[in-house]
Design a binder for these strands. Sequence first.
DNA 1: GCAATGCTTCGACACGGATCGAACCATGGA
DNA 2: TCCATGGTTCGATCCGTGTCGAAGCATTGC
Lengths: 228, 228
Amino acid sequence: MKDGPDIARIGALMGDPARANILCALLSGKALTATELATEAGITGQTASSHLKKLMEGGLLTQAKQGRHRYFTLAGPEVGAVLEAVMGLAARKGHLRTRTGPRDPQMRAARVCYDHLAGDMAVRIFDSLQKRGFLAVSTDKGGIALTDDGAGFVSSIGIDLDTLSASRRPLCRACLDWSERRNHLAGGLGAALLTRFTDSGWLRQEPSSRIVHVSPKGEAELKKLFQV
Amino acid sequence: MKDGPDIARIGALMGDPARANILCALLSGKALTATELATEAGITGQTASSHLKKLMEGGLLTQAKQGRHRYFTLAGPEVGAVLEAVMGLAARKGHLRTRTGPRDPQMRAARVCYDHLAGDMAVRIFDSLQKRGFLAVSTDKGGIALTDDGAGFVSSIGIDLDTLSASRRPLCRACLDWSERRNHLAGGLGAALLTRFTDSGWLRQEPSSRIVHVSPKGEAELKKLFQV
DNA sequence: GCAATGCTTCGACACGGATCGAACCATGGA
DNA sequence: TCCATGGTTCGATCCGTGTCGAAGCATTGC
């Protein structure tokens, strides 16, 4: 059984605790510098440099040098999706961190999954879109498509569908939520919704964390939009 | 960023080449003995025993002792799905096995993904079901549901939907195909279709491999059913 | 030009874990 | 009862690699 892609290379990259911490930190979607990632992972700068080099060679990260800083991000949404999927398996098998802090409930409520929203709130938004007939099974890469009604709805929120559709990225994708074990909306539209809600001040991402807070106004507006 | 499930444990389990071979071998869906897995992975029995123990403790495998044999299988469909997802990422990042043998095209054409069909043929079947309006986006765990028309269609093929629906397992799930980068049908229905086609002699799984061969009769019948 | 900061490379060290040989249980058959 | 086969446990070995200190570049700011 030596057929198929080499799963061990990716597994080994995720398998080191320090590298796993780095990847989880980057799941926040933010671009972080090498030293930030080092402190995040609890290692020195030298060690982090070695890890980051390996993650780059493995194709999981991209870097952008800016001045004397070097910013790292996940190589793309598909990397984030796989990380969430592995997290889901880990959660199911009881591989929780030894210290599950008080931040855990907040993570389950609403968090960032690389570039879109995840957690309980994201799942409820997905359900709302589905129940109102805004989503349809598609033969496209994403597996999901917007119906005409759905297109009208998101346009009414102020999402520019034309530019989104022009991108090569699939508009809608289903991403498996590790805490809810159900789907939430990823893809170009998922990312656009997150930026839309953040720009409006409805959502605010906690610094150096994946946790997302909902403002009182956001609470009201989202309830109006999605009946959640 | 010490929040969330422990991704490193799972990663480390997949990260060893011998263990990766074992997991890939079990993606064929068959239950294999410890010695079979040892030869498959190219290691001795003692080493395999140690690896199998770790995979068991990690919750990725289940074992069933039968006589003096010990049969191992993947712990469930969700494990297979994650393995396929990681394979997809590995393929995208160019992490192919050094020796991609002549069997590779056959793998891409049709193969088993733990308990359902994957590869080009599976993707085309999924497309056919979708185009004819047999699938709908759902709020259930799987994210996909059968429409009434779809239920009529699969019943007409001889699938017993009542017993399938009675199971706690989601009826339909979308599983990302590593070779096609598109969805194919997993879940209880996906598994039922595979057994149905195999029992009819339309499909035949190659021994000790994930490759699936299509009989001439199967070719004709599947074309009739799905216009593929 | 000089110092400070961010990051990488080099070298050395130490720990973990993958591996196999040999001995040790368990089951099934003669 | 004895042997053969499938699996596990134990012990020893050895390679890989994660780790950090120190030195070396690169870039920015004074």
